[in-house]
């Protein structure tokens, strides 16, 4: 009996205490929910349109739920050789390119995090300048051309090899997440710089490494323009470049044949978008848990 009284008392108090707060929380929830809907709806629309009858899509009947569910769009996608070749090359560029990025970035971040690094200030200044000033697109291409990277798919792997921003993110991670005691213990055991890094530092840096992998991999995966800029042969096009050609097609003209082509083209636009997006959206939640404050907050010092 007393318990119940206490509970009602508590409840009454709570409501009294936060009446203005209550209004605030409701408004806050509404805004956040609206934002969520704005994010979800376009994605939802692409999914339902990709499995609907193309005629219904083209007349605008599909907007809330799929109509006459069909997977012919996906079937047609399987026959597109260019897409699968693009897929293969994108995977190749992404895996090799990201490995290259990691090999350059993580050790650099570690070195910069050590106060005793010789020429530390000079190196920092050299890196920071590139964040705000660069030669620009055309000189970049001239230099790459001189290095024999023009029309060479290798550029899709080694291009954008070091992001200075990411190096600094690693640096501040190492500064705040590697305990001094571990390093001192290593020093007493006689571990050199190399041993320290590989045996002591890397094993406790999994979170920053996976975040870096995600950042760089997304960059490689999404890159479409380098294939144009460097005039890469179309048989080496990555997926996004192939996709751009596909999505940019505007069909015109009249007659039944063209109408049929248009239906197929519309459908394949939706399905290819899904095929190209799913892998990265699957990878992301696996790494999302590492986006803790520790990794990201330090990057702005």
């Amino acid at each position: 009996m007393e318990k119940q009284q206490l509970r009602t008392l508590k409840r009454q108090n709570k409501i009294k205490e936060s009446k203005t707060d209550y209004v605030y929380y409701v408004i806050c929830a509404i805004i956040l929910a609206l934002l969520a809907i704005i994010i979800i709806y376009p994605l939802y629309y692409i999914v339902i349109a990709s499995i609907s009858d193309p005629d219904a899509v083209m007349t605008g009947d599909v907007w809330l739920y799929p109509i006459k569910v069909t997977f012919s769009g996906y079937a047609a996608l399987f026959e597109r050789e260019d897409i699968w070749r693009g897929y293969f090359f994108t995977l190749l560029y992404t895996i090799l390119g990201t490995a290259f990025n990691i090999v350059l970035t993580i050790p650099a971040g570690w070195a910069l995090s050590r106060q005793y690094l010789p020429f530390r200030k000079l190196i920092m200044v050299l890196l920071i300048i590139t964040m705000f000033f660069g030669g620009g697109l055309v000189p970049y291409i001239i230099i790459c051309r001189a290095l024999g990277l023009y029309q060479n798919p290798l550029i899709l792997i080694i291009g954008g090899g070091v992001s200075v921003y990411n190096v600094f993110m690693c640096k501040s991670f190492f500064e705040s997440n590697v305990p001094k005691e571990v390093l001192e213990a290593g020093m007493i055991d006689g571990a050199g710089e190399v041993r320290t890094f590989f045996d002591l530092v890397l094993p406790i840096s999994k979170s920053i490494i996976s975040v870096m992998i995600l950042f760089y991999a997304v960059g490689h995966w999404n890159n479409y323009i380098d294939a144009y800029i460097f005039n890469i042969d179309s048989q080496f096009y990555p997926l996004q470049t192939v996709l751009n050609g596909l999505l940019d097609q505007t069909s015109g003209g009249e007659g039944d044949v063209i109408l049929e082509q248009m239906r197929a083209a519309t459908q394949i636009k939706f399905t290819s978008i899904i095929i190209a997006t799913v892998p990265i959206l699957v990878l992301y939640p696996m790494i999302e848990k590492h986006f803790g404050q520790g990794v990201l907050v330090g990057s702005f010092k």
Partner: peptide, 10 residues
């Protein structure tokens, strides 16, 4: 030795 870590990136 630690310079070797940053050399490739540099």
């Amino acid at each position: 030795w630690i310079l070797l870590f940053i050399l490739p990136a540099l």
